[in-house]
Simulated assay, not measured.
Amino acid sequence: MGTIRTDDGRGRLGNVLSSVAVAVGCVLFLGGFAWGAVVYRPYTVPTDSMAPTVEIGDRVLAQRIDGDEVRRGDIVVFRDAGWGDLPMVKRVVAVGGDEVACCSDGRKLTVNGVPIEEPYLPDAVPASPGNFTAKVPAGQLFLLGDERIGSLDSRTHLEDPGQGSVARSAVEARLDAVAWPLGGGVLERPQSFAQLPGGVSRPGPVKLIVGSVLVGAVLIFGGAAWGPLARGLLARRRGKVPADAG
């Protein structure tokens, strides 16, 4: 009697695994995009007031959040009638109840008397070219641009009610990553604010979302390529092995 061939069985198993990989890949790929669309909003940065952290024209991903989730150090997108009622991008340096001042030593910002290291500022630039002091009302945020020389921020509105602060409810989203140009990457939370009550915010899920999309793409293309590749290898093997004798 002839021997029993198992090539067809292996081929069927390969087809099943290929189909499963493509199906799982589609779930991860499409699910990642859907998750990102729910959690994030894309913005184009309109000015250079946040340079060098984000430059004018950069495409950024901002996580939809409630104003109560904002922490010191966050870069937020907000809209306020007193600031022109347009989406603006600034960094939160103080929250309700804080006293923010600059610059007792000529260079550093202080919050409640604590000097704040700001590694995101351009080299050799003081925390503010002019001195100021403000007491932030409850439920408000004090915002500065990272480009402290030319940024129009809370310092510009110090004579307004609230000493230039903006209501937490004005916040629409928090920047998590620069999507374009490539290489901008995830925006790190400045740990210098972690020593203050409330600490810093936790990063959003952008890395998980990107990972889901990338893994999904690999599974889709890998699974789709496995079927034809396996059939080709099987056909070559059959061509080299003589038929079984009866």
Rank of each mutant, 00 (worst) to 15 (best):
R168C: 01
D176H: 05
E147V: 01
G216C: 09
E99N: 07
V77E: 03
P119V: 10
V20Y: 11
R231G: 09
I56R: 15
I116W: 04
Q140C: 05
A127Y: 08
G162I: 01
P52N: 13
W226S: 14
R12D: 07
A177T: 01
L144F: 06
G216L: 07
R231S: 14
K108C: 04
V92E: 03
P205K: 09
G96R: 11
E147P: 00
V39A: 01
W83K: 04
S165K: 02
G184R: 02
V22K: 09
P129S: 11
D7I: 13
L109A: 03
R12Y: 14
S151C: 11
T47V: 11
R236K: 15
R168L: 06
T156Y: 15
V186T: 13
D105M: 09
V92I: 13
D244Q: 10
A194R: 13
F78Y: 15
V92T: 05
G232Y: 13
T44Q: 14
G222C: 14
K90Y: 08
Q163P: 02
F78W: 10
A94V: 09
V93C: 02
I65N: 03
Q140S: 11
A34K: 04
R91N: 10
L121W: 06
G216P: 02
L86F: 10
V136S: 03
V186D: 05
I56L: 12
G216F: 06
R59T: 09
L175F: 03
D68W: 04
G204V: 01
A230H: 15
L187V: 05
P181R: 10
E117L: 12
G84L: 08
D85K: 07
F132R: 07
E117F: 07
A134C: 08
A127N: 13
V89R: 00
A62R: 01
G9N: 09
